[in-house]
Design a protein around this nucleic acid. Structure first.
Lengths: 150, 150
DNA sequence: TAAAAATACTTTAAGCTTAAAAATTTTAAA
DNA sequence: TTTAAAATTTTTAAGCTTAAAGTATTTTTA
């Protein structure tokens, strides 16, 4: 196999990943909207916060989700409006704030997460155990910022 | 392996795909911006049009790229503004228009495409030939609308 | 300790994205 | 043929996203 055809194969792989990812996101977006009256970005923020009982700082959140700083500001603003999360002052550093799920937010997310996993499980029906694991390992060494704890 | 742990493994795979995809897109976006003064959505539209010498109708374009109809309208508007593409009337159907790359647009894209493939090839350095092929096959049967010619 | 640099976050302007509604044209049906 | 239905695209309103600039605070350094 030449370097050239390897390059083509990698490009094909990338385009296919992009296609699957967009299609899956589109399906998730639709279901979150119709069945839970929320959006994918909000779900993502809630998911990140759900994992940490003590919440996350804004910049941690933005690094975790791989979106810009200012972006998170807007999403959190809207989540605060409807009582899903709250901003809590950090003592000793008045620049930063900690964002936490409220009890109501935790409850809401918990229900969504169960369904979300079910959706993914169904959508990825064609992927068996050893494949899921194998691909997962491979992706692990793909484009990502160094020292990434996911 | 229980059904439950398979479900978890699939979820993990999905999250990892999402992470890699976002990171890769972010890198591409940055390079397209700094080195070619364009955006990823515009690149995507141009790529779709480059493949078809006779261009595509708006709804074909939107289906191909998996984005909403109205979305394509805006991107094409801007590409028309800077002379990259043109809308051509379809004889026999005054509802639809065909969108084509202009000669200048073809030239611009052609140069970008070469670099784009180089970027992907470098980013996916960790994926060997048989892996690229294997994963590609798997992804092929993943979430996608039926009868999809990609 | 005062100035400079770094950090954390928000704001802004431009563009992207979606779902839903509207406008136009074509096709089908009565 | 007149009307209804379908198809193609654009418009609209709301929200998402980014990069860059701005504000406030903390840390470093001279």
């Amino acid at each position: 196999m030449t370097a050239q055809s390897l390059s083509k194969e990698r490009l094909r792989l990338w385009l296919r990943m992009l296609r699957v990812t967009r299609q899956t996101e589109s399906i998730l977006r639709e279901r979150l909207r119709t069945e839970h009256d929320t959006t994918l970005p909000r779900f993502d923020v809630m998911a990140a916060l759900y994992a940490d009982k003590d919440g996350l700082k804004m910049n941690e959140l933005s690094r975790r989700l791989r979106v810009s700083n200012g972006n998170v500001t807007g999403i959190v603003d809207r989540l605060v409006e409807d009582g899903t999360v709250e901003r809590i002052a950090i003592e000793g550093d008045r620049r930063a704030t900690r964002v936490c799920l409220t009890p109501a937010g935790r409850e809401t997310f918990s229900a969504m997460a169960v369904e979300h996993e079910r959706w993914i499980n169904a959508l990825f029906e064609g992927v068996g155990e050893e494949d899921a694991h194998h691909i997962g390992e491979l992706l692990h060494c793909l484009p990502t910022t160094a020292h990434d704890p996911d």
